[in-house]
Amino acid sequence: MKVVVDRVKCTGLGICESLAPDVFEVGDDGDLVLLADLVSGSGIEAVEQAVAGCPTEALRLTE
């Protein structure tokens, strides 16, 4: 699955980073950094939680 970030909607709150730290990181400048844009296996569950928990709905998964 591919992680897609809507950079216009993302405010860098860091909820995604707390739920899936292997995939998301908020940089010192407040911008979201994708550490991996493709996830599979055991990483999918954490990323799904991050997508669901994003208050600005800036994250989604595509195939």
Rank of each mutant, 00 (worst) to 15 (best):
K2F: 05
V3L: 03
V4H: 04
V5H: 06
V5M: 10
V5S: 07
D6V: 08
R7H: 12
R7Y: 15
V8A: 15
V8W: 06
K9H: 05
C10N: 06
G12V: 03
G14D: 03
I15S: 07
I15K: 07
C16P: 10
C16D: 03
E17C: 10
E17P: 05
S18D: 11
S18K: 15
S18F: 11
L19N: 04
L19D: 03
A20W: 00
F24L: 08
G27F: 02
G27R: 15
D28P: 15
D29E: 09
G30E: 07
G30I: 01
G30F: 01
G30P: 02
D31E: 14
D31L: 11
D31W: 05
D31K: 11
L32I: 13
V33C: 01
V33D: 02
L34P: 00
L35V: 09
L35F: 10
L35S: 01
D37H: 08
D37Y: 02
L38E: 07
L38C: 02
V39S: 05
V39H: 01
S40M: 00
S40F: 06
G41W: 10
G41R: 09
S42K: 14
S42P: 03
G43H: 03
G43K: 10
I44T: 09
I44Y: 00
I44W: 01
E45C: 00
E45A: 11
A46N: 07
V47F: 04
V47K: 01
E48R: 14
Q49C: 08
A50F: 04
A50C: 13
A50R: 01
V51L: 05
A52Q: 13
C54N: 09
T56G: 02
T56N: 14
E57V: 11
E57D: 13
A58K: 06
